[in-house]
């Protein structure tokens, strides 16, 4: 699903966030990216989401070389990937329903047709009864689940999440991870950046550890 060949991301100052990184993630995998802050976790996800372009190397997402995705085509490319952020990135001036519906509206689905799917997505994250509330009235864990509902509403094959549990206490974190797990069980590929090693270990998923933009080790629980 995702393949990186010798990818380097150099910032204008000259420092490298990712240097010569190669890795491969199969379809249907649930993979964690770990490492200290500044190790390049976020940059890796941003490269995959085409928020950044690599300085060097090749990134292939679902058989598609991202270098060939023209600027004009980036929105269409992003619509195929579900994204979850540490700070949720919700729109606080509109209710939960509208937030979750947004990807569908962007894709041209009418507001009315979107309703059924918005409720299905909210049901999956356990927030069906909160659709009319404003995000600001929700707890951090609930806001994150709204973010997840928004990410999965277009039924992407790939979901990337940058520190999705960064602001949550352990119980809420575990709940979010369980939600991710359920998506993984129906075939969604997940790539999650996190520094919560204990939580990750308890899930028993593959881990990609980054250090200074390079691969530190690949801890595979099945070996």
């Amino acid at each position: 699903m995702i393949q990186l060949n010798n990818v380097t991301k150099r910032f204008p100052g000259g420092q490298e966030a990712i240097s010569g990184l190669s890795l491969s993630i199969d379809k249907g995998e649930m993979v964690f990216v770990t490492g200290h802050s500044g190790a390049g976790k976020s940059t890796l996800l941003r490269l995959i989401a085409l928020i950044e372009r690599p300085s060097d190397g090749q990134i292939i997402v679902d058989n598609q070389n991202t270098r060939r995705v023209k600027r004009r085509k980036i929105p269409a490319y992003r619509r195929q990937i579900g994204m979850v952020f540490q700070d949720h990135k919700l729109l606080y001036d509109r209710p939960v329903f509208d937030n979750v519906a947004l990807p569908l509206i962007i894709a041209g689905v009418s507001y009315r047709d979107a309703g059924r799917r918005v409720r299905a997505a909210l049901d999956q994250v356990g927030l069906l009864h909160k659709e009319k509330q404003r995000p600001a009235t929700l707890s951090a864990g609930e806001q994150q689940r709204v973010g997840i509902a928004r990410a999965i509403i277009t039924r992407p094959k790939l979901l990337i999440a940058d520190e999705p549990t960064g602001n949550l206490d352990p119980d809420l974190s575990l709940e979010v991870m369980r939600i991710f797990r359920r998506f993984n069980e129906v075939g969604v590929t997940l790539l999650i950046a996190s520094h919560d090693i204990t939580l990750i270990d308890s899930l028993g998923c593959r881990r990609i550890a980054l250090e200074d933009g390079k691969l530190q080790q690949e801890a595979d629980p099945w070996q």
Binding site: D62, N63, V69, Q80, A107, R155, L158
Partner: peptide
């Protein structure tokens, strides 16, 4: 997951 047009990107929606 090749890039397709908007309407195709979301398959199971009633096609308009």
């Amino acid at each position: 997951m090749a890039i397709t047009r908007n309407a195709d990107a979301i398959a199971p929606v009633r096609s308009s």
